[in-house]
């Protein structure tokens, strides 16, 4: 089926180069819109990605304040100190996560309303399921690492699991999310080799990358969307 999809996709662009607006051009365009609308979650909004990036940066800033007293020497952590601040760190992380989720859902619902389609349809369900399955595993795993005092590998773990979740979900929504996932993966691997730079790379991955992606998405996808 994927082949038919790409076939129609290329056909559509072949058509775009020819400015003559006729019946066949419209027909091919309609086929493409129908295929895309029925199989992909398209009410994602770039604005929400920018906001999520800002929340992450704010969260990282707060976390830095909580972490600095127990981070005696750069790159080395005392396991004892971490147990005492673990609840605060989890609270900050959960707050950023909850706020991000709310923002994404709110903007998606708004966009769906604008596009006059129901927000939680089949493709949306498949996107969220495929995104949250690996992500939930990664989240629980990160909590286990924090409780166990293995704090040095939490940041790379979060980046890696998040990247995999995005790649997994990209099949059911905008394809370009695949590349965001790859960037997160790469950053996670870099982070794994750079002890002590966890929070910095986490801020780049969850903060800066989201802002860059959101801006890209707004200018490249949302303004020229066929389905919108």
């Amino acid at each position: 089926m994927r082949r038919v999809y790409f076939y129609v996709f290329t056909l559509h662009f072949k058509v775009l180069s020819d400015m003559e607006n006729n019946e066949i051009v419209e027909t091919v365009k309609e086929i493409r819109v129908m295929m895309e609308k029925s199989s992909r979650f398209l009410s994602f909004s770039g604005t929400s990605a920018i906001l999520v990036g800002l929340y992450a940066l704010a969260g990282a800033f707060v976390a830095r304040g909580i972490i600095s007293p127990v981070k005696d020497i750069p790159g080395e952590y005392s396991a004892l100190g971490w147990i005492t601040i673990a609840p605060d760190i989890i609270l900050v992380a959960l707050a950023v996560f909850a706020l991000s989720l709310f923002t994404i859902l709110f903007f998606s619902a708004r966009k769906a309303k604008k596009m006059k389609c129901s927000f939680f349809n089949g493709p949306a369900y498949r996107t969220f399921l495929n995104f949250f399955l690996p992500l939930t595993a990664g989240g629980i795993f990160s909590v286990a690492l924090l409780i166990g005092g293995n704090v040095g590998i939490i940041a790379p773990t979060m980046l890696l699991f998040y990247g995999l979740s995005l790649i997994n979900a990209s099949k059911y929504t905008y394809g370009n999310i695949f590349w965001l996932g790859c960037c997160e993966l790469l950053l996670g691997l870099v982070c794994a080799f750079l002890p002590g730079k966890g929070l910095l790379l986490w801020s780049i991955g969850f903060g800066a990358l989201h802002i860059v992606y959101g801006i890209y998405f707004y200018f490249r996808v949302e303004r020229y969307s066929v389905a919108a």
Binding site: M1, V4, Y5, T27, E30, I31, M34, M35, K37, S38, S39, K116, C117, S118, N121, G122
Partner: peptide, 24 residues
Amino acid sequence: RLGIMSVLMVNEEIDFNSLKELLR
């Protein structure tokens, strides 16, 4: 009819109400 077929080419199956909404 073209719309129905397009949708079914990329989805294994679809229910009546989803199809109705997609095609308006």
